[in-house]
Amino acid sequence: MHRSVLRILSALLLIGAVATALLYRDQLDIAALETWVNGAGAAAPLIFIGLYALATVLFLPGAVLTLAGGALFGPLWGTLYNLLGATLGATLAFLIARHLAGDWVQTRAKGLIARLIQGVEAEGWRFVAFTRLVPLFPFNLLNYALGLTRIRVLPYLLASLIFMLPGALAYTYLGFVGREAMAGSEGLIRNGLIALALLAAVAFLPRLITRLRQRPMLPVEELKRRLDTGDQDLLVLDVRTPEDFVGDQGHLAEAVNIPLEHLPDQIEALESNLERPIALICRTDRRSAQAAALLAGRGFAQVQVIQGGMTAWRAHGWPVEQAHAQAN
């Protein structure tokens, strides 16, 4: 009972601190911060890292501090200090959430929420890495949310440290270029081009990671084998139109029909299948490929396109159905 009261008081204190920080965040004076940190001498890096970590815990915008880190310490050391501050703050928020509410959420999570948590836990550090490179949720909120899962602390910390590096480097360098511009540096054009290249690389990363997460096409013969063996874990998702689903080609008895056009609106309903093997099928494999890119970009880990689609299935003479199957 005493521990529960202490946790409730701690949670209320945290909520109050976050609310106060958000209320006064417009008064965050970066120029005054730079003056104060510059006057700290050898302790400046440690002070800056601590402030960055505290800002992360209190939901203050990290991008502003990242730019300030580049202006204060340059592109190399600034990236290091920004990265350490962000990782420290993310880990503190993770541990706070786990201590205050981790057990409570684990024992009370039901239905879709429970399945979503289980999917994230099964992916582990890979889910952390993916969300750091391809931000799906606000950074500060995600730190607390991941603390409510059973992902281990060390993999979380290391994945955050490593996979936040590209973004930290790009925005730190941008802050450095801003300082050079104000100082009228002769290398401004060169540094500006480097900063733009880094930002372009960071912008391209989500597409690259999405492609890497996409698996090779699944031969239709392998799909038949898995269905014949009663693979209950496999979700067969037919992304044709409803008319095609019940049309001349028919559909697989095990298939669920969600047309490609409706898939973005159905993502939330499918989130319980984040770690479940999903076989995408259409008339050939073009619509399935588009659906696979969409699902991979939203964190689905085991998505495969059926090579040749229903056309290949029918070429083998295997059975199909024409009656409509409702999506779950």
Rank of each mutant, 00 (worst) to 15 (best):
R7P: 03
I8L: 14
L9A: 15
S10C: 13
A11V: 11
L12Q: 00
L12R: 08
G16R: 09
A17M: 12
A19W: 14
Y24L: 14
L28K: 02
L28S: 02
I30M: 14
L33R: 05
G39A: 09
A42K: 04
A44W: 00
I47M: 12
I47V: 09
F48R: 03
F48V: 09
F48C: 08
L51M: 14
Y52H: 11
L60F: 14
G62R: 07
G62Y: 07
P75R: 10
G78N: 08
L80I: 07
Y81K: 03
L84A: 14
G85N: 10
H99Q: 13
Q106G: 10
R108D: 06
L116I: 15
R126P: 01
V128A: 01
V128C: 10
L136N: 10
L141W: 14
I151N: 00
Y156W: 04
L158E: 06
L158Q: 02
S160D: 02
A168P: 12
A168L: 13
A170M: 01
Y171L: 15
L174R: 11
L174F: 13
V177S: 08
A181T: 08
L188E: 05
I189V: 14
A197P: 05
A200E: 03
L205A: 13
L208K: 09
T210K: 12
R213F: 00
P216D: 01
P219M: 07
T241Q: 00
P242Y: 01
D244L: 10
V246I: 07
V256L: 10
E268V: 14
E271D: 04
L274S: 05
E275C: 06
R276G: 06
R276S: 10
I281F: 03
C282E: 05
D285F: 07
A289I: 11
A292S: 13
A293V: 15
A293Q: 15
R298V: 15
F300N: 09
V303S: 06
Q304D: 06
V305S: 07
V305W: 03
V305E: 00
Q307E: 10
A312G: 02
A312F: 04
W318L: 01
Q326R: 11
